[in-house]
Design a protein around this nucleic acid. Structure first.
Lengths: 146, 146
DNA sequence: TTATCATGTAACTTTTAATGTTTCATGTAT
DNA sequence: ATACATGAAACATTAAAAGTTACATGATAA
């Protein structure tokens, strides 16, 4: 039941935007150095994106990872979902006295709130395509109408 | 950087509502048995609530933990805050290339969304007082107007 | 005033899943 | 063939919450 404060989304997005600016494929070693991590972790993570069709991989000389779609056709939601994380919340519910009406009430109340907040979060993620992360300045806000 | 899927909020709320139905104080041992945990963990957690004035503790014979306020004067937000958790999200941001405009853009976009979702979540938590968890049936939803 | 009970707290161990690492198999280009 | 790069299995490391042990402090009751 332990989960890291997961910065994979942030790191993967960072990589994907950089990849768009490269000519050829990026190797797992190159990406690992970018992210201060190691190639196997990179392969594990990129494999999830490959399954969903966001990147491709080529073996051998001159191989590596490439975008399978333009950044404008990938959203924050797509990447988040591909990474396959469960709940986005650190807050969890108990499941020990499922017959206790108080536990049911407590969990129900918390769950209502978590579901609403998660729905909002995912909706916002769906609104942001990765091409919008290329030139965004520090103070600029991502809005729905833009 | 590891954090458990934290069910402390759910567990503590469960306890607080039960405490309201008791005559005298509840000991750490009693509460620990309720939660399938141990007394020291209970004391650590209850100490956080005591600091914020939501419960009191009495030592010695007949001692234990009691509510310092009626349930109607404690919100989900109060308890959540007292437990002193950091972010409610498992999603975190990188902080390794703070000079890279792409990382800034990525983190900015994610952070905008997280902040909005967290604001909503906390606002909803503020709307729910613990007395509303006493009789809530399974299908009943907590609404703002009710 | 002594025994018992209960919180307060420090120090240490356990747990657990992501991450890191090693190693080798598989496939590809030169 | 050789070098390069992904694919993947197996194992070690890490880090923070939770569990545990031990003892000090304070309060009640006999």
């Amino acid at each position: 039941m332990v989960m890291r404060k997961d910065s994979r989304l942030s790191r993967v997005l960072h990589v994907l935007v950089h990849m768009d600016q490269l000519d050829g494929p990026a190797t797992s070693d190159t990406i690992a150095r970018m992210l201060n991590t190691n190639p196997v972790v990179v392969r594990r993570t990129m494999a999830l994106l490959k399954t969903e069709g966001y990147v491709t991989s080529v073996k051998g000389h001159g191989g590596g990872w490439s975008l399978a779609r333009p950044l404008s056709a990938i959203t924050l939601y797509d990447v988040h979902r591909a990474l396959g994380e469960g709940s986005v919340f650190t807050i969890g519910l108990t499941d020990e006295h499922t017959d206790c009406p108080i536990e049911q009430a407590v969990n129900g109340a918390i769950d209502d709130v978590l579901e609403e907040a998660e729905s909002l979060l995912l909706a916002r993620f769906r609104d942001v395509t990765l091409d919008r992360l290329q030139f965004r300045s520090r103070s600029e806000k991502v809005s729905n109408s833009g």
